[in-house]
């Protein structure tokens, strides 16, 4: 929480003192500042120690149209990197891994009847589940938007 506040302050300071071009970049990063990525293309956005988890645009595109979603149960304890569900597209079942450790607090039940929402809106309506983080430090090891974009370019 304290960390978040510090980040917000620094980002505000940064925006205030830089040129127009940099302002745009700062603005861009503000939009996505809470969305952090894993190398396996999951994202998590944390507010008040509750993380919302989904898959990135790259991942949904690679998977193709999702036809069935299997999500973890509310109350389930998971560790970062644990297999905690599956997304089935036409002919391939891709495992879902949690980017963070904690307890599942909510799952996106809309996806059960409308799995293709993941393709249409992977960052908004197509979120997968919410998790109460047990270790806030894990978030620091994830990539921000800029780092993730760079990672995608390199791979």
């Amino acid at each position: 929480m304290v960390m978040c506040t510090i980040l917000q302050v620094t980002s505000r300071l940064a925006r205030g003192g830089l040129s127009v071009q940099c302002c745009q970049r700062a603005l861009y990063s503000t939009q996505n500042k809470t969305r952090l990525y894993t190398k396996k293309h999951e994202w998590v956005s944390v507010s008040d120690n509750i993380g919302t988890v989904g898959i990135s645009n790259y991942a949904q595109d690679a998977l193709g149209e999702v036809v069935y979603v299997q999500l973890p149960e509310v109350g389930q304890e998971i560790a970062a990197g644990d297999e905690c569900g599956a997304l089935e597209s036409v002919k391939a079942a891709g495992e879902v891994y949690s980017p963070v450790s904690g307890t599942i607090t909510e799952k996106n039940t809309t996806l059960e009847s409308k799995p293709a929402l993941i393709n249409k809106s992977c960052y908004e309506d197509g979120w997968l589940f919410r998790v109460k983080l047990s270790n806030m430090d894990e978030v620091k090891q994830l990539m921000d938007q800029t780092a993730y974009d760079k990672y995608l370019e390199e791979h």
Binding site: K40, K91, E95, Y97
Partner: peptide, 8 residues
């Protein structure tokens, strides 16, 4: 017929 499983 084809099917697949993708893990980490």
């Amino acid at each position: 017929g084809t099917a697949a499983k993708l893990g980490r």
